[in-house]
Simulated scan of single mutants.
Amino acid sequence: MNEMTTTTAKDWASDQEVRWCPGCGDYAVLKAVQRTMPDLGVAREKTVFISGIGCSSRFPYYMASYGFHTIHGRAPAIATGVKLANPELDVWIITGDGDALSIGGNHTMHVLRRNLDCQILLFNNEIYGLTKGQYSPTSRLGTRSPSTPFGSIDRPITPCMFALGSGARFIARGIDVHKNLPDVLKAAHAHRGASFIEIYQNCIVYNDEVFSSFTEKQNAAHMQLWLQPGEKMRFDAGTKGLALDSEALALKVVAGDDPSVIVHNPKNRGIAAMLIEMRQDEGFPVALGVIYEDPRPTFESAVVEQNAKAAEGKTPDLQALVSKGQTWQVEKEPHKL
C-alpha cells in the first residue's frame, strides 16, 4: 500500500477554469471528489483520472493530478493499460451514461469482469448533454428529444444491473448534490477491484429535474433508502422497511418496526439485484449507497503474478528474443547499372 499523504481539497483543484453549464450537477460531483481525496491520503503524483467523451469527461482537466481525456467509450481500455504499466497508481475512470453504456458498453463490461483495481464514476443524467440533448441508453420510455421527437421507444439500461451482470464486485449509487456522496466514494476506493458507482446527475439544460421524484427535498426522505452494511433496510424516517416475500421471492414494503425487515448484507447478490430493480411506481424507494460488495483478486495482480512466474530463472535477452524461431538475413546485392 502507498504511504498516506497529507493534502487539502485546494491541492486537488487545478488552475483550469471549470466550464460546465451553470447549475450542472457535475460541479457538485467535482467538489465531492476534491473534498474526498485528502481523506483518502493518496498522493496526487500517484493518481490518474481517465475519461472518455462527454460533459463529465472534462473532469481530468479540473483535478491537479495526472489525467487523460481519451476517446469515446474507450476510457476503460486506457485505464487498463495505465494500471498494468504501473499497478501502484490510483486509477479513476470518469464517464457518462452514453460514453460508458453505448459506444463504450463492451469496454465497460470487460473492465468490470476483469476486475481491474479502479474506481468507475458513471454520471447518469439520462440524456446526451454534450451533443445537445439526444436520448441516451438510460433515457426513459417516452423521452422526447431531438433524436426521439415522438418519444423514445427504447427500453433503458439500468446501469447497476448492467454492472452486476458483467461481474462487477462492487456496485453503489449516489446523488450529485447529496452529502453522502463522499462516503460512497471512500467505500469505493477502499474496495480492491473495479468499483462501479452510478451517480444520479442533473442536466439542468436538457433533462432538468428528471430525478426530482426522489431527489427533491419533499420527496427525498420518503423515497431514498441509504443502505448500511449490517443495518436494517429502513426508509421514510424509519417508518417503512423492506422484507423478503418468501412465496414470491421478491422484496416487499413493510412497517419499519416489523421484525421481518432485512439486514443489509452487501455480499448477497440476489438481494442486490432486487434492490437495483426496485421501482418507485410500485411503491419502492431508490436504493443508494453500497448495494453489492464481494471482493475477489484483481486483474492486474494476476497479470503481475503470471509475469513473475514466467520470468523465473530467466535472464532478459532482447537479441535472443528477436532471433528466436525462423530468421534469415538479406544480403545486399552489388549495385547494377
Rank of each mutant, 00 (worst) to 15 (best):
F49P: 06
G174D: 00
L275G: 05
L164H: 13
D154V: 13
M274Y: 12
L244S: 09
A85V: 08
P137A: 11
S212E: 05
Q319I: 10
R44W: 04
I175M: 04
E247V: 14
L141N: 10
K336Y: 09
V330C: 13
L89S: 02
A64P: 05
A85E: 03
F235V: 08
M4W: 12
C55N: 10
A168L: 12
D281N: 15
K240Q: 12
A187E: 06
Q326Y: 12
F196K: 08
A168P: 11
P146V: 11
G23S: 00
R140W: 12
S301V: 05
E333I: 11
G98L: 02
L112Q: 13
W226Q: 00
D15E: 13
E277R: 14
P22I: 05
L242Y: 10
Y62H: 09
L244M: 14
D183F: 07
M161E: 13
K83V: 09
K332L: 13
V82D: 02
T239M: 06
V254N: 06
T95K: 03
L141R: 11
G98P: 02
N125P: 05
D317N: 11
V286H: 05
R173T: 11
T6I: 13
T47H: 00
R279G: 08
D183H: 08
L275Q: 03
A163D: 09
A287T: 07
N219E: 11
A43G: 02
H191V: 06
I175K: 01
K132V: 15
G193P: 03
G165V: 08
P285V: 12
G167D: 10
